[in-house]
Design a protein around this nucleic acid. Structure first.
Lengths: 101, 101
DNA sequence: CTTATCATGTTTGTAATACAAACTGGTTTG
DNA sequence: CAAACCAGTTTGTATTACAAACATGATAAG
């Protein structure tokens, strides 16, 4: 049953905000900083912060902290695992929805 | 930005179980009964019941109750709106897929 | 120097919700 | 009649998405 391919999808990607974040990072193929994600995805800082922490805990994203002009600068990078899980997600959804056309 | 097409997606479809249900009903193109969904999607009765209620409240599904052999029989049908929202979901995910290649 | 303001995130309190256990209403079996 | 069964529904709980409040340090004002 095609619908059951959904059980292979990483649970963290089954959230619209986190999927948006991962799509963004996966597309960028380079580091993206906190404030860029904040404005492009229109989130509050608290919300973004907790989502990124979860994505890091899951190993989908790597967090890097540096100082720029004496201010903290947090950047994020999609890991190989993260990219793979995004592909799994897309493949599963396509399989499910193609069959329902 | 392709990732933002995700904001058009109906929130109820952003749940793996409900997406599975909608894919199933959309594929069937006819009514599907409670117990069929139960076994095919491997859910508990309580869980399925509440998901179906939510989908009905959102107008994505129509619930119909009849009697067969003096026993209740609940069947579900994908509405036009439901089918449309599944297409919106598909379009958004495809947009994300294309941009991240 | 002291106080205020801004910048960058993090922690915490709350409201929403996914899930299964317990319940309901009715039927069949012993 | 009682016990088991069928078809769902309601309820209690544990998780979690979110924003408000907080923390930390830099710059500006007085």
């Amino acid at each position: 049953m095609a619908a059951n391919e959904l059980i292979n999808v990483h649970p963290s990607l089954f959230d619209r905000v986190r999927l948006g974040i991962m799509a963004h990072l996966s597309l960028a193929k380079k580091t993206v900083d906190f404030n860029t994600l904040l404005t492009e995805l229109e989130l509050t800082r608290g919300n973004l912060s907790t989502h990124m922490k979860k994505l890091e805990d899951d190993g989908l994203v790597r967090i890097d902290k540096t100082f720029v002009d004496r201010k903290t600068r947090t950047t994020y990078l999609c890991t190989g695992k993260g990219r793979k899980e995004v592909q799994v997600y897309l493949a599963a959804v396509e399989a499910v929805l193609r069959s329902s056309l």
